[in-house]
Design a protein around this nucleic acid. Structure first.
Length: 564
RNA sequence: CGGGACGUAGCGCAGCCUGGAAGCGCACCCGCUUGGGGUGUGGGGGGUCGGCGGUUCAAAUCCGCCCGUCCCGACCA
């Protein structure tokens, strides 16, 4: 591709709307342009990257025996009503009516559609196993779209659905997708980690998330180097190194703590370590029942764990007015003593002596509170987020934590959808049974952002060879080399994807642009060519330069590309 | 939806407080210049100042409402 014939508007400055590196670089590099919040145009350069990733995904899915289909973005409400998700799915489901006043939605996922398809066509165990997939736009009306392609409302997703006759089959399909996903992310040139994860709205016992490792990731992963345990922190059991201070139980004492609200402030004011303070949070379950949750001041509540304890019931933090009404105090002075509601206490407070609680009276706390003595817990449970210093649930070695961007998620669904929608098959034994399902997603457009977050420097993007929009860039620094540049361009284009910057721009502009958009190899015709007839090959990743004679060039590129 | 910020040329911003000719840098067009890291220089085009309403002789500027965007929290690939 000639640069003069390519639609590639690059920007010299960061657009003010972008915050993260990947978002800034995608806009500056002319990959995408915003249409509305969370909705983007893919320009030719961005589209090329998208197609590259798509093809890597497609190739591996096909190898796994999955069959590509295409399902509609617009979906009728009837199917969603069958599974109950028309009501259960939140506002992310964009609902609307057609001209006949019939309810429709934009598909945020396709379980209903695919299950409907399969129930109509699959009759016998002989038709199973079956894995169907598509690479198609999804729409989720996110509360807060952000970071460009990272959390867009309309985005490109690969979603796959497996159908099996028995548990053994499900397990096989799940493992097949697991290994396929590993290959896909490897082939994309990404550093990633598969972790155990929360199943969320999809249902099922457990799932795996595929995380691209990056400091800017929104998720935290707990990893054990010793035994290989890896989970999303939402799911990680919090196991303290058992080292409670040994001290006699002291008498409860009410202390004056004027205007001291946060756990940190209380600790400072009283001169105690933060772990001696507790936080009491009031939640409202299903808009009626209040509960109190007590955790240590140095710990953070894990709402996923709370959700499980509450059996999946909806809950939210109480408002300040509700808290005042229920406890008689403002947030900051709450404590479990004397509350007339269910009290759930984090396990870290079991046997923990002489801690501080709020007095449910503004400007007062109690010191030397003790579980069982000062107040009773209705339930003692693991409620907190695992944290630095906690132990691996499998092997007792210390965990460490990494940040990741979720690019894939695989689930065993069981019969959740097939039962609700009566997707059944006739088994060998002549009995009609619900089909066992699994579902498997990859955020194709999100991978672009994740790849950039993981691979960039102050000059711009550094694309892995496999997903670069062009593999080779040619820069001629003087018109006198034009003929040679043209020749190289046409010859190399037969073997690789080449972007030839044939603009009449100064060298600096060409270098800056080529670096910005992350082309892995740059061929430069300049001094070395004029003086010695050697073509300068610049490796974007390492900023290394090689000087290669034309007759060796193709071999050199083939070899070096294996390391990119 | 709650909290915060912003909206002036394609992009980045100043001007607003204290009302009185719509500016700067980059980008874009034309010329010359330069050719190893956003070359220099001369000329030029481009604006419903987010929208509507109000105050005023006069509104980018003051007031009200609305819209949009971004950031922080809950959702998710």
């Amino acid at each position: 591709m000639r640069r003069t014939r390519f639609f590639l508007p690059t920007l010299r400055e960061d657009p003010s709307e972008a915050e993260t590196v990947s978002h800034k670089l995608l806009l500056r590099g002319g990959f995408i342009r915003k249409v509305a919040s969370g909705i983007y145009n893919f320009l030719p350069l961005g589209f090329r990257v998208l197609k590259k990733i798509e093809n890597i995904v497609r190739e591996e899915m096909n190898k796994a025996g999955a069959l590509e289909i295409l399902m509609p973005l617009v979906q009728p409400a009837e199917l969603w009503k069958e599974t109950g998700r028309w009501e259960a799915y939140g506002k992310e489901l964009l609902r609307f009516k057609d001209r006949k006043e019939h309810d429709f939605c934009l598909g945020p996922t396709h379980e209903e559609i695919v299950t409907d398809l399969v129930r109509k066509e699959v009759r016998s165990y002989r038709d199973l196993p079956l894995i169907l997939y598509q690479i198609a736009p999804k729409f989720r009306d996110e509360i807060r779209p952000r970071f460009g392609l990272m959390r867009a409302r309309e985005f490109l997703m690969k979603d796959a659905y497996s159908f099996d006759a028995d548990l053994e089959g499900v397990e096989k399909s799940y493992q097949l997708m697991y290994s396929t996903y590993c290959k896909i992310f490897e082939n994309c040139g990404l550093k990633f980690k598969a972790v155990k994860a929360h199943t969320g709205a999809m249902g099922g016992d457990f799932s795996h998330e595929f995380m691209v490792l990056s400091e800017t990731g929104e998720d935290t992963l707990a990893i054990c180097e010793n035994c290989g345990y890896a989970s999303n922190i939402e799911l990680t059991p919090a196991i303290s190194k058992a080292s409670y201070p040994i001290e006699p139980i002291k008498p409860l004492e009410k202390v004056y703590t004027p205007g001291v609200r946060s756990a940190k402030d209380v600790a400072e004011y009283l001169g105690f370590p933060l772990e001696k303070i507790t936080k009491t949070l009031i939640y409202i379950i299903e808009e009626k029942e209040p509960i109190a949750v007590v955790i240590r001041g140095d710990h953070e509540l894990n709402e996923v764990k709370l959700e499980k304890i509450l059996g999946g019931k909806a809950f939210r933090l109480a408002t300040e007015e509700e808290i005042l009404k229920l406890t008689g105090a403002h947030p900051g002075f709450l404590g479990p003593k004397g509350l007339s509601m269910k009290i759930i206490v984090d396990k870290a407070l079991e046997n923990y002596p002489n801690f501080v609680i709020g007095a449910n009276e503004d400007n007062y706390h109690y010191v030397n509170a003790n579980l069982g003595e000062t107040f009773k817990a209705d339930l003692l449970a693991d409620l907190r987020k695992a944290t630095q210093g906690d132990l691996c649930p499998q092997c007792d070695k210390e965990l460490f934590f990494l940040k990741g961007i979720e690019v894939g998620h695989i689930f065993k669904l069981g019969t959740k959808y097939s039962s609700a929608m009566r997707a059944t098959f006739l088994d060998r034994d002549g009995k009609e049974k619900p089909i066992l399902m699994g579902c498997y997603g990859i955020g194709v457009s999100r991978i672009i952002s994740a790849a950039i977050e993981q691979n960039n420097d102050e000059k711009g993007i550094i694309f892995p060879w496999a997903i670069a929009p062009f593999q080779i860039g040619i820069i001629s620094l003087n018109k006198i080399f034009s003929d040679k540049a043209e020749k190289l361009y046409s010859e190399l284009s037969a073997l690789w994807e080449v972007l030839y910057d044939d603009r009449e721009e100064s060298p600096g502009v060409k270098f800056k642009d080529m670096d910005l958009i992350g082309i892995p190899l740059q061929l430069i015709l300049g001094k070395s060519f004029q003086e010695r007839g050697e073509i300068e090959v610049k490796i974007r990743k390492k900023d290394e330069r090689f000087y290669v004679r034309e007759e060796n060039l193709k071999n050199f590129i083939s070899e070096i590309s294996k390391t990119l």
